[in-house]
């Protein structure tokens, strides 16, 4: 008998009488002003929120924060007149000097400052994790209250990689001192488009 069969047989024999699945929708709070909550949550976890009126404003803010010769990599069509668009000429290892990578987020979560995106928005799946600095863009109307609404939106969609990114990479492993930029981006800016 294979291990698979052995394990399954043992489980069948040992699992207790069937317990019902509870309502997964128990307990939701509706935060008041979603944008304010999101900005507060993101700030609390070491991220930065910038409210922007349009693509031009975002481009200007990025230019100011990351002056030349910073290498900016862009995956968003709305910004392709301003920044180099990601292309296949790059090897993932090249992204380690990118400051910042600009990615479109699908939505933001007010309760925790997280932004959801999938491999579709990443261009290269290594990009959001290896770049030195990361910028994500969401629309103000795409800020939802909690993770419950988040999974309502994600629903049964398929992806290779789906990710919540909440703030910059961080660690507190040395005496609980918070340090931003453990392995991944040292900073995260979320632009909130009106």
């Amino acid at each position: 008998m294979s291990s698979r069969e052995k394990i399954l047989a043992a489980l069948k024999q040992n699992q207790p009488a069937r317990q019902p699945l509870p309502d997964a929708h128990t307990g939701r709070t509706q935060p008041g002003n979603l944008k304010e909550k999101f900005i507060q949550a993101l700030t609390d976890i070491g991220g930065k929120a910038v409210e922007a009126q349009g693509w031009k404003a975002i481009a200007a803010a990025l230019r100011e924060a990351f002056p030349a010769p910073a290498q900016i990599i862009n995956t968003i069509p709305g910004l392709n007149s301003e920044f180099e668009i990601l292309s296949s000429k790059f090897h993932p290892h090249d992204f380690r000097n990118v400051s910042p990578a600009i990615l479109q987020g699908q939505f933001g979560v007010a309760e925790n400052g997280a932004v959801w995106l999938t491999n579709e928005q990443m261009g290269d799946q290594a990009l959001p994790y290896i770049c030195e600095h990361l910028a994500l863009i969401i629309s103000q109307r795409d800020i939802i209250p909690t993770l419950h609404e988040a999974y309502d939106r994600i629903s049964n969609s398929t992806y290779r990689l789906g990710a919540f990114i909440a703030g910059p990479s961080k660690t507190a492993d040395i005496e609980q001192s918070l340090v931003l930029g453990a392995h991944g981006p040292k900073s995260l800016t979320v632009f909130i488009l009106d």
Binding site: A24, A41, D44, I45, V109, E111, N112, G113, A114, Y129, T146, L147, H148, A150, Y151, T158, Y159, R160, L161, G162, A163, F164, I165, A166, G167, P168, S169, K170, A172, G184
Partner: peptide, 26 residues
């Protein structure tokens, strides 16, 4: 996942969520 991710990091370190919650489907 909504329920478990809301509980996990808050219980672990007091963060509202870990920086990265990565869903590897394919």
């Amino acid at each position: 996942l909504a329920i478990f991710l809301r509980l996990l990091a808050r219980s672990a370190t007091g963060q509202p969520i870990t920086t990265y919650s990565s869903h590897f489907q394919k």
